[in-house]
Every structure is written in C-alpha cells, then in structure tokens.
Amino acid sequence: VVLHARGRTRPGQSCVLAGIVVAMLFSNPLVGEALLGSLEDDFSPAPVDSYPVVDAIVVLGGMTAPPLPPRLQVEVGDAFDRLLHGMRLLRAGRASTLVLCGGVISYLVGSELSEAERLARLTLEYGIAPGRLLLEDKSRNTYENGLFTARRLRERGWQRILLVTSASHMRRGVGVFERQGLDVIAAPTDFVVVDKPFSPMRLMPDVEALRASSRAVKEYVGILVYWLRGYL
C-alpha cells in the first residue's frame, strides 16, 4: 500500500509475486517430500529386536501439550512416535532404563510441568514402571538435551545409548550426543516421507507439503547454527 501511494508499484508487485512463487514452490508435495526426505534418508528404520543391548534408551521430547483447561490430561502431537518407539525398545529388552528428555519453557506452553514429566505420565498409562525411568527435565533445546543427559548418564557410568527421535531430526541429534562423548546408536522413527504411487494431485499445492518444507528448512538451519557454534 505504501509503495502504491508513492507511485512505486513495480517493486511492491515484484515482492508479492516472489512471495507467491516461493509459497507455491514449498507447498508442492514433490518439493516438500524431497526436502524432508533428504534428512530422513540418512537413517533407516529397523525392527526393535535387531538393536543391540545398551546402557539406556534416550527419547528426545517435543511432542506433548500440558493439561491446561479445558484439557483433562497431557495431549500429544505428531512426534509421539518417539515415545512409542522408545517404549517398544524398552519392552524388547534393549535397555533397562528409558531416559525422557525435555525441560520447561513456560512462556511457550503456559505450564511449569516439564516435557520429561509429561512424557513420564504417559508412560505410566502404558504400564511402564516408574523405576525404569530417568528424567532429564532441564533442557530447552537439542543441544541441552545432549549436554544434560550426558551428565546424568556419566554419573551412572553409562556410555552406550539408543537415541530415539524423529528421522528428520536424527542427524542433529546424533551429532550433539556424540559431541558429548557418548556412543550413539540411532533408532529413528516418525518417518513422514513414504513410498507411494504417483498421482497428479501431488502436483497441486498442499498445506501438509508446506509443513514438510518448513520442517526441513528449520532443521537445516538448526544444523548450520549448531555446526557454527561447535555443538556438532
């Protein structure tokens, strides 16, 4: 509007057009799948009983919402596969302890209940004994997940872990935990990009494709920032 009032419509129109082109590009399912798939393809899923026995199974948080009104209990998001996969590995005897990561970011979620505590509540609903849990409830990001978890593990003389997080997040997760001196075995889950037949509809803009593109771009930016800061 300001540009139009000043008689400078061409730059404004160019900006609008560029924005539309970028939005159309990143909302294309083929583009979204290519971007997110480039992260997920680094790690392949495996049956839970194919993993070696380790000191602990570490599950990274970022999948729950606190029980604020009108909710009556903790609610979960797409990444809940992380907790499910961690519990499957625990029940398969891959370790005797499940480490749940995630602190409190009250200004974002409006609750003083940590992510690790919320995850612990959910594991109890699935019949996991409290004595098999170790909570890392101070971290606010992936770097702190690795930093604080490594401290807790070293206190117990533990070194080898199965790291459970979303496949698209695993590259950064493994890098952070290895940087802390841990022996890390990736146990990826929450795969978004799957094999499916081509359909002309996959050429049409799609909200889920835009979400996949955004998730991939965010992760690549995170990897770059962590590399520059020496976290990887």
Score class of each variant (00 low, 15 high):
Asn28Trp: 12
Ile20Arg: 04
His169Val: 03
Val193Asn: 08
His85Ser: 07
Leu72Phe: 01
Thr165Gly: 00
Thr64Ala: 09
Ala95Phe: 09
Leu133Pro: 06
Arg151Asn: 09
Phe26Val: 14
Leu122Ser: 06
Asn28Gly: 02
Gly61Tyr: 03
Arg179Glu: 09
Gln73Pro: 00
Gly110Ala: 06
Ile185Arg: 11
Pro45Phe: 01
Gly19Gln: 11
Gln180Tyr: 04
Met87Pro: 01
Arg132Ile: 02
Leu90Cys: 09
Met201Cys: 00
Leu163Asn: 02
Val1Glu: 14
Ser50Val: 06
Lys138Phe: 00
Leu60Trp: 01
Gly131Pro: 06
Arg179Tyr: 02
Gly175Tyr: 06
Leu72Asn: 09
Arg172Gly: 05
Val174Lys: 08
Val174Ser: 04
Arg202Ala: 08
Leu210Lys: 04
Glu136Trp: 08
Ala95Gln: 12
Gly77Ile: 07
Arg121Glu: 13
Thr123Ala: 03
Gly175Ser: 09
Leu35Ile: 08
Arg160Leu: 05
Arg202Thr: 10
Ile128Glu: 10
Ser139Leu: 03
Val59Arg: 02
Leu90Gly: 07
His169Tyr: 03
Ala5Asn: 14
Ser168Gly: 05
Ala212Gln: 15
Val104Gly: 04
Leu89Asp: 05
Glu117Gly: 02
Ile223Gln: 13
Gly37Lys: 05
Ser114Lys: 11
Leu119Ser: 11
Asp81Trp: 14
Ser199Met: 10
Gly110Phe: 08
Leu98Asn: 04
Ser96Leu: 09
Leu210Gln: 07
Arg152Ala: 02
Glu115Thr: 10
Gly12Glu: 11
Leu203Gln: 05
Leu119Asn: 11
Val16Met: 14
Arg179Asp: 03
Leu108Pro: 00
Met204Arg: 12
Leu30Gly: 03
His85Phe: 07
Arg211Pro: 01
Pro200Tyr: 06
Ala18Asn: 02
Val22Pro: 00
Arg121Gly: 12
Gly222Ala: 10
Thr123Gln: 08
Arg94Gly: 03
Val16Thr: 14
Asp81Glu: 15
Pro200Asp: 00
Val53Leu: 00
Arg121His: 06
Ser213Ile: 12
Met63Lys: 03
Ser111Trp: 07
Ala5Gln: 15
Leu124Asn: 01
Arg172Ala: 01
His85Val: 05
Ala216Tyr: 08
Asp190Pro: 05
Leu134Gln: 10
Ala56Leu: 10
Phe148Thr: 00
Val1Ser: 15
Glu125Val: 10
Pro197Ile: 07
Glu117Ala: 14
Thr142Leu: 06
Gly61Ala: 03
Lys218Cys: 05
Ala212Arg: 15
Glu136Ala: 08
Arg152Ile: 14
Gly102Thr: 02
Val48His: 05
Lys196Trp: 10
Cys15Glu: 07
Phe26Tyr: 14
Ala18Met: 07
Pro52Tyr: 04
Gly157Asn: 11
Val53Trp: 00
Ala79Ile: 00
